[in-house]
Design a protein around this nucleic acid. Structure first.
Lengths: 300, 300
DNA sequence: CGATCTTACGGGATTCGTAAACATA
DNA sequence: TATGTTTACGAATCCCGTAAGATCG
């Protein structure tokens, strides 16, 4: 007993139009072909669904009862496949990404807006967490893509660099060090230092980096919030070092900045995804947008 | 974009077993055939559902999301067709019949029991109404079959006789007329007469019949209930005439009866159904059972 | 090297459309 | 007789299974 979708479609067409001829044109089939399709269907299900005389067409009680069921079946079938097709053509779908705060605050909005413009019906969920959490969320599959610094991660993840992020020093207006076009670490170490708090990878990278040079920073204050740090710098409480991504924010808050000379401190920023796990069409599209919007437009 | 049931079945099998080879045996297909089926499915829906490497098999996010949908689709599909098939094989189904009270009370129970024994899973609904209402219910489609006297009905109904019902006279014990083996109408007319009330066709048939002979009955009492009539006869309030079907009930209540000589009063009892409307398998089976259980077993 | 999936190809079944036969009002 | 359905039959298509090729661990 094997019944095809076409057969059910044929039955629904005939039952709806109450005519083989009409139904045949409706489903783009010749009358005889339709006749045989129905005949085979009836054979398969074990009894007649329609009673045809040349002048009238009626449904058997079984057919009458089956008609709405068949209609539902076809509707569900087409609906499900339509949905699936929509996902591939990006006319529908869903995407979860995680991004580290500096990226989420500065670059991501323009990326999202470009993506939304191209694929208006893809729902996007963004998680704004520290870089290490980004990697964890990708690993556990809670998000499909992550954007964060490159770190040492297990083999199960892959990293695609987007651009090399460099750190810059933040200074208050009229600070003496502003006379230099580029600062060096010893100059910075001479001043009180403000930095982000513990889970931040920015903090970690800076401390590791200066420690390699035998320089020690005089950490005066820590905060989770970049805004707070910048505000304090502007108020003259000390200096800080932040990703160049944050330059717009520094300037907006009335701060000044200078690049840091060799050794430059920085880390590649890029896309994290699971190894050997295929991406959704929506995620692949996001990677394309990211590369197009970000690559070559690196700050500094 | 045309997707077949087999293709979805194939996808579900592969996604469940996580192996083409295993799935192939599961759905009785060769590995290559399965491979092509999946390939065609993916082409039809517009993107990959599975990622295969020779050593591992994973679902794409779209495939992951589609799998439960596909499983539901297949389940609904099979379920619906199974149901339909069950109806034709009488493993399931439903039937509505109407029967006139005399038949419903005496013959129908044994018919129903025979039917139930043969087709235990067919639900039956019986309407116990007077003969004319039986015909109306068949005409309006509220029941598929009706069992009642033959009457003049429009062309839209068909009547299949089961047996000729004859009426018999009911008498109290030790009544003088019991000395005859067969009564004649004038003898009956000489006694007080008890009959069923207005909507009953039994009453109507009797009155019409005797009127033709110019005989008038002295109707002493009327009731809707046959039991009441018989009880009154037994108590000596008069005579009555009822269908021979009711003989068991007469005797059970302590009454006596005699056939009525020429002209015999009676009417064919049979099956009513709609013209040009096909019967359900369940109804056809009921007709077979009726004919087998009733034909040739006519009372008297 | 072995297990597994994919491609290639020939045979077979299914399904289609045209034309003719059939049935009913 | 006219309309509408079914049967007949040749052709195209689709689908399957065997055999050979490709790929990953």
């Amino acid at each position: 007993m094997n019944v095809s979708v076409k057969q059910i479609r044929a039955f629904v067409a005939v039952a709806s139009t109450r005519s083989f001829a009409e139904a045949a044109t409706l489903i783009h089939l010749s009358q005889p072909a339709l006749s045989i399709a129905i005949k085979n269907l009836e054979e398969a299900v074990g009894g007649p669904l329609l009673v045809r005389s040349t002048r009238s067409l009626a449904l058997t009680p079984e057919g009458e009862q089956f008609l709405p069921v068949a209609q539902g079946l076809i509707q569900d079938w087409d609906g499900a496949l339509q949905d699936l097709h929509s996902q591939f053509t990006l006319k529908r779908g869903h995407l979860s990404v995680a991004a580290m705060p500096s990226f989420a605050a500065h670059q991501l909005p323009v990326v999202l807006s470009a993506y939304r413009q191209r694929y208006p019906n893809i729902g996007i969920r963004v998680q704004d967490v520290v870089a290490e959490a980004v990697v964890d969320m990708v690993r556990s599959g809670r998000v499909e893509l992550g954007i964060a610094f490159e770190v040492d991660a297990a083999e199960d993840l892959s990293f695609t660099p987007l651009y090399p992020e460099q750190f810059v020093a933040v200074l208050p207006p009229e600070h003496p060090l502003l006379q230099y076009d580029e600062l060096r670490w010893p100059m910075i170490a001479a001043e009180p230092f403000l930095t982000l708090q513990a889970p931040s990878m920015v903090r970690q990278l800076i401390l590791e980096s200066v420690a390699e040079q035998g320089i020690e920073l005089d950490i005066e204050f820590e905060s989770h919030q970049l805004v707070t740090i910048i505000r304090m710098v502007v108020c003259g409480l000390g200096l800080s070092v932040v990703p160049s991504l944050c330059i717009p924010q520094i300037e907006q808050q009335g701060g000044h900045w200078r690049p840091i000379g060799s050794p430059r401190v920085g880390r590649a920023v890029g896309i994290w995804q699971r190894q050997r796990y295929p991406l959704s069409s929506a995620a692949e599209a996001m990677i394309r947008v990211l590369e197009q919007e970000i690559k070559g437009k690196t700050p500094l």
